[in-house]
């Protein structure tokens, strides 16, 4: 069960002139939720973007299962079974909820529509506002759509970037419950600033600082380790 599904080895990446990732190495086990923690600017989002092919990898290896994917185009990586929920409500505001979903469906098979039923159970609001323009949804509903639309395909791994950003605390709790149900079906890599949410859903975690992994742990034991949390995350 716990085979390695995603491996990053000494990955370097730049944004403009800035050397953001300075040799990230990490391994994601299949099943469960791997959380990337760290201060602002530590390189968490860039790590996800590098995996997805959105940030150019200058050197290092990224492997999905046995395939080296560094340098592949984002659409290619997506088709290999990597789902990506970008920061800031990654949905198309001018399209209806229905159109957002149709866009996401890379194949429209019976299985797709079965998954659709599961998504409706998970996020009932999306069914209610099926024909509404996504831009008119509330903040929480937009985030449900952003996550829901990625679930329609059969993924090997799901990358989610700060889903709690800008959500009211009660919605964050709901989001956590949804993520717990989603993790039963797929592997998740989660970037999260909200430590409570991270602890609620996470199984493993990596702490990033200045573009490197500085600590690797089980989520549960990190939550007990007040010294580390203060040192790297400034909490506790």
């Amino acid at each position: 069960m716990n085979e390695i599904i995603l491996t990053l080895k000494d990955v370097h990446a730049h944004i403009g002139q800035h050397h953001i990732l300075q040799g990230i190495s990490l391994q994601v086990k299949s099943g469960g939720v791997t959380v990337l923690l760290g201060r602002n600017g530590a390189g968490k989002s860039t790590t996800l973007r590098a995996i997805m092919g959105l940030a150019t990898v200058a050197s290092g290896r990224i492997c999905l299962g046995d395939d080296a994917i560094a340098g592949y185009k984002p659409y290619h990586i997506a088709r290999m079974g990597v789902g990506f929920v970008a920061e800031d409500r990654a949905i198309l505001y001018k399209l209806t909820v229905a159109e957002n979903f149709r866009l996401s469906m890379l194949m429209e098979t019976d299985a797709t529509w079965q998954r659709m039923e599961t998504i409706f159970l998970l996020f009932p609001d999306l069914k209610r506002f099926w024909n509404v323009k996504a831009g008119l949804l509330s903040g929480g509903q937009k985030q449900m759509l952003a996550i829901g639309r990625v679930l329609v395909n059969d993924h090997r791994i799901l990358l989610i970037d700060e889903p709690s950003k800008g959500l009211a605390p009660i919605l964050v709790t709901q989001l956590g419950e949804s993520l717990i149900r989603i993790r039963e079906k797929t592997t998740i890599v989660l970037v999260e600033q909200n430590f409570r949410l991270a602890r609620q859903v996470g199984s493993d975690c990596f702490i990033l600082d200045d573009g490197r992994v500085v600590h690797e742990d089980r989520m549960a034991s990190l939550a007990q380790d007040r010294g580390r949390m203060k040192k790297y995350l400034g909490i506790g």
Binding site: P74, Y75, A86, A90, L103
Partner: peptide, 22 residues
């Protein structure tokens, strides 16, 4: 669907690309 992809691509190329379309 092609129309949806085109309209989506105009609004946000990155989402369309990371969804799996060239």
């Amino acid at each position: 669907k092609l129309g949806i992809i085109v309209r989506a691509g105009v609004e946000n190329r990155e989402i369309v690309e990371t969804t799996g379309y060239n």
